[in-house]
Nucleic acid binder design. Structure first.
Length: 464
RNA sequence: GCUCCCAUCGUCUAGCGGCCUAGGACGUCGCCCUCUCACGGCGAAGACCGCGGGUUCGAAUCCCGCUGGGAGCGCCA
């Protein structure tokens, strides 16, 4: 048979029992990167053999997460549930070849025996009782794969190097449940083999499963793929990242106003590095990725760094694009983009002061308000009788000033301030509070130019 | 308990035997810029390279042991 498996085929195989989470997204990313780098194929396969916990909602959510991250796939989504007959044919094959057997033990019986093993210091595993049992009993049964009693199985891992396991460590794996459905370790092997997957890149929580999968490959006459096990992403307490550590769903990061490129960049840098470089475009990632530079130890998910990266990508986006991206955040809070305010200019002023789209939307709200509400404490501190007097005077000065551009405004106000023997410092904060309701905002002249004469005068009158 | 994986600043990491009195980035703290806040610029603190043995002229880098952490040990994936 011709060996024409030169272009790699990779896959991401989530189970739809939850949303696409951070760890899964990184696994998908690394598979995707390698596939794209080598002009290979990236397959999305849904591992939904657990009918109890799998839902369509999660399938859609996972796909939405990948689409948002722009991790596009070439084949799929393929559902394992559609391939049940296929798996069963292989169960039959193994049964006929004497490589598997029916097991009539109940869960309770096994549980008792395993507990006893654990108590005596042994690794709890199925004791193989039914291997020699009468196979024609009229009782419910599951089907087990006969493990090898001796020898060593070596996993040639692309990331961890060679890892060897004693075959005696492995027990007789259930490949078909009592209800007749095949199990994960069995289905993956068949799917990966039949879909001609060349590289299986997944979390290292699967490393212990790999030797038994290799044995399954061999038993069914398949050639094992290459494996690569990624270290886990950890929470701040260095345990495997979970809900306990806060948001883990990729889509939740979209809602928090993160940019897909930032998240991709961040995810890539947990576990993978390229010298001292921190910022990578997708193209660079595809070009520079290699298993060789994937680390072997787990990495903590550091949201502060994600925030920094997000800020970086945010300020490098053009204003019009950002406007499209931030609008949903504004609308969600009941704001309507008004043509009176040049939003792109407002965004230009705030984008380097915001780390997320959410923060950006917050920074834009004051432009859109009908009137400014000022916190009493701020009012007391900044809008003193003296300040109000100044603002009133300033209001008159501006009313007759027609050119509301930033430079013209600055010239006009500077002149007025200097004429009064004051410093900009003396009026900037009261003015800022009156116009924005906050002590924090973009530069006062830029902001006034964006806000427009009418609103500026209106807001000044409201406080004086 | 058993099996497997892992171990450099608080965090992500560079380092693949001499270039390391250990480099970069995030965060932190100063200073500069300045109308506030950011951005930006400059600078500082921060790792006896988990511990102990080897190998070697020489080890963060190789080997062994220990300790610590993680994962697995499901008729979940």
């Amino acid at each position: 048979m011709a060996q024409e498996t030169q272009t790699p085929r990779l896959r991401f195989a989530p189970s739809p029992t939850g949303h696409l989470h951070i760890g899964g997204a990184r696994t998908a990313l690394f598979n995707w990167l390698y596939a794209r780098q080598n002009k290979g194929t990236f397959v999305l396969r849904i591992e939904d053999t657990d009918r109890e916990r799998s839902t369509d909602e999660y399938v859609h959510s996972i796909m939405a997460g990948m689409e948002w991250l722009q991790l596009d796939w070439n084949e799929g989504p393929l559902h394992q549930i559609d391939r049940m007959d296929l798996y069963k044919s292989y169960v039959e094959k193994l049964l006929n070849e004497g490589k598997a057997y029916k097991c009539f033990c109940t869960a309770e019986e096994i549980d008792v025996r395993k507990k006893a093993m654990l108590a005596s210091g042994q690794k709890p595993k199925y004791d193989g009782l039914c291997r020699n049992a009468n196979q024609n009993q009229q009782k419910p049964f599951c089907i087990r794969f006969i493990s090898k009693p001796e020898g060593t199985t070596i996993v040639h891992d692309l990331i961890k190097g060679d890892v060897s396991f004693e075959n005696a460590e492995m027990d007789d794996l259930v490949i078909q449940r009592t209800d007749g459905t095949p199990t994960y370790n069995f289905c993956v092997v068949i799917d990966d083999a039949l879909m001609r997957i060349t590289h299986i890149i997944r979390g290292d929580d699967h490393l212990n499963n790999t030797p038994r999968q290799i044995l399954l490959y061999e038993a069914m006459g398949f050639t094992p793929a290459k494996f690569g096990h990624l270290p886990m992403i950890l929470g701040s307490d260095k345990t495997r990242l979970s809900k306990r550590h806060g948001a883990t769903s990729v889509l939740a990061y979209r809602e928090m106003g993160f940019l897909p490129d930032a998240l991709i960049n961040f995810l890539a840098r947990i576990g993978w590095s390229f010298g001292d470089q921190e910022i990578f475009s997708r193209e660079e990632l595809i070009e520079k990725f290699s298993f060789e530079n994937v680390g072997t130890s787990g990495g903590v998910f550091n949201q502060e760094k994600l925030l920094w990266l997000n800020a970086h990508y945010l300020k490098n986006l053009d204003d019009k694009t950002l406007q499209v991206m931030v609008t949903p955040f504004l609308e969600k809070d009941g704001f309507r983009i008004s043509p009176e305010i040049p939003m792109d200019k407002a965004i230009h002023l705030s984008k380097e002061r915001s780390r997320t789209l959410l923060e950006l939307s917050e920074a834009l709200k004051f432009y859109l308000h009908q009137s400014v509400t000022i916190d009493p404490a701020l009012k007391e501190k900044f809008l003193t009788p003296l300040a109000i007097e100044l603002l009133r005077e300033l209001s008159h000065q501006i009313e007759t000033h027609s050119d509301f551009s930033e430079t013209s405004l600055k010239a006009k106000i500077d002149e007025w301030i200097t004429g009064k023997g004051l410093k900009l410092k003396d009026v900037a904060q009261p003015l800022r509070v009156a116009l924005t309701g906050s002590t924090v905002s973009p530069g006062i002249f830029e902001l006034m130019a964006v806000l427009g004469k009418e609103k500026v005068i209106q807001r000044l009158k409201a406080v004086s």
